[in-house]
Write a protein that binds this DNA or RNA. Structure first.
Lengths: 344, 344
DNA sequence: TTGTAAGCGTTATCAC
DNA sequence: GTGATAACGCTTACAA
């Protein structure tokens, strides 16, 4: 004896039979209701309800050549900054009826290339890539498959790829100039790992250039590269303090490193900002809550996610969309910076 | 004039032609290489390389009735705790060749039901749901579509659903008993919003029970429900301090609320823990870094994500997997707790 | 406005 | 070991 409605996943033909129409009409009623008589649509919707019908996405994607999904390849979700952006991305996509496929590569370019291929294989209609530096095979894959994509967080210098992001170099310059204006002359930087990460590289470069522009320089032993973890931030601070002359200002590659550095200052009995100023980038809200408040360059990360989604959605809809968008960043001065100690 | 290889997305038949075999053989070579002569496999792989062939996931899913994707429905990525779990989930799935489809509902049960249906429609092979409280339509949908699923973070009291999570009630009891043992008698709780959130509800209940077990109670005006944000944590602290008699211990529903509460203590000139003890749940690493360190019940969130993935992968592979797994939680005592002030 | 029928690119069941 | 061939469930000209 067969089970009743609801116990089996119904298909389009089941709905069609129950509504006494053809499969084609059901399909239309579901995707372009205005092309079907209102009464018929109503009847079909009843049948859909009764059967608990849910369309088969793979079949739909195969026939229509549209999966209604967008892929995102990011370094990690463990860093709140990327999680924020991803959240906004997902939300915007969802509102437009698109689903997010997510993959992380943990800063490994080979993993990135592999997961990007996988997402393409899963049939994403478009792709969000984080950063501008990618394995050539990544660009090759998206291009041969004609998949709309957008690079995010940084700005593509080559001008060959659509991008939406921040000017990380300018952000570095901004923070360094702030410190220079306060009178600082002895700098250190706890940078993120720059290999394959143009965001970290650009920030460091911006800092370097600003300092050089005033006839000063960032000594090599005062620059360390660290992964984005709190303990790495602590270690980083210890390392840049090793030399005889202590820097008066420490610039950190992001807020996680900065908080780690602040924690180490506290543990080592170094008063911030009286003895040393600490600054960073990215600015999680949480950074503002801790004592002492952290001076940062703030990046509008949620806006980034939403804009990336909108850009892709526009292109999928055949509408034009700017090939390059720069989002403004903002210097947020809090109590972790001050002029250098009177007698440096 | 036609373009050469590489400019167009090749299909299985193209590979077959180039390798001088049938489509069926290519399909086998790609999915079950051991069923094909080694030399043939090699020839086919050459053709795949030459054409830059990438399988069409939708077609594959349609024919094989397997999409190699798993969906996850979570409240939000803005809370680092869920982002952590999601990261581990994605990583484990990726290692097994599965792709993650992600959706957030921001604590709205209706949105949750909708996005769950959407994920089913996208063809996920299995589903990770966060929490045990869900709209009936959610359970109905996964059941009629025979989709393996697992509830996470909390433990299902009904025993009807596979779950893997923490005993939030016991965690609440644990933290309250710690404070009781230190001599505290006047408590307050800044809880998460309990509506539709059994994690928040269970934690609060656990705290209540532990206090009641010693013949004391948590006064209604000393319990506030707040969304999981830093500012809500600050407000929450103000509110529970309104009454004449000040509590000596404030328990916060999660670490975000706790950090907010600590920030407010600092702003209001309240010394922690000399005048008041602050504790929380969840325990982001960052909490340990700030001053004063935060006493929490720590949840192994990354393990949760990995185990949820493994559970589902096992079931998809036809292997048995425990229908209910409880992960141990750990009380981490730091400097934010102390015995109550001498003269309460 | 609705129906017919030809795919969409794979996999899977057979034979060979 | 390999090759035909029929699904898989839906969309979309083209007809009616």
């Amino acid at each position: 004896m067969k089970r009743d409605t609801g116990s089996q996943a119904a298909k389009l033909s089941d709905v069609a039979r129950l509504a006494r129409v053809s499969a084609a009409t059901v399909s239309r009623a579901l995707t372009q209701p205005h092309k079907v008589k209102a009464a018929t649509v109503a009847r079909i919707q009843q049948a859909v309800q009764a059967l608990g019908y849910v369309a088969h996405g793979a079949a739909r994607a195969l026939a229509s050549r549209r999966a209604r999904t967008v892929g995102a390849v990011i370094p990690t979700l463990d860093n709140a900054i990327f999680a924020n952006t991803t959240h906004a991305l997902q939300k915007t996509l969802d509102e437009a009826g698109y689903t997010l496929l997510l993959a992380c590569h943990e800063f490994d370019p080979l993993v990135e290339a592999r997961v990007t291929r996988t997402l393409i294989e899963r049939g994403v209609d478009a792709l969000v890539l984080l950063g501008t530096t990618h394995d050539p095979s990544v660009f090759h894959a998206v291009e041969t498959h004609r998949i709309p994509y957008v690079l995010t967080w940084a700005l593509d210098a080559s001008g060959r790829h659509p991008c939406i992001g921040f000017d990380n170099r300018a952000a570095g310059t901004r923070i360094a100039e702030h410190l220079l204006d306060l009178g600082h002359r002895e700098f250190a930087m706890i940078s993120g790992v720059t290999a394959g990460n143009e965001r970290a590289r650009d920030r460091l470069q911006g800092v370097r250039e600003a300092i050089a522009a005033r006839g000063l320089w960032l000594r090599p032993q005062r620059v360390v590269e660290k992964p984005f973890t709190l303990t790495a931030g602590r270690e980083g601070l210890k390392e840049v303090l090793r030399g005889e002359a202590r820097p008066t200002a420490v610039i950190c590659g992001n807020d996680v490193l900065a908080i780690g550095a602040l924690a180490e200052c506290h543990a080592a009995g170094i008063e911030v900002p009286r003895q040393i100023s600490v600054t960073g980038f990215d600015d999680m809200e949480i950074a503002a809550m801790i004592t002492p408040g952290l001076t940062t360059v703030h990046f509008p990360t949620a806006e980034l996610g939403a804009l990336a989604a909108q850009h892709l959605l526009a292109r999928l809809a055949g509408e034009p969309s700017a090939a390059r968008t720069e989002l403004p960043v903002e210097l947020v001065v809090r109590s972790s910076t001050a002029p250098p100690p009177a007698k440096p």
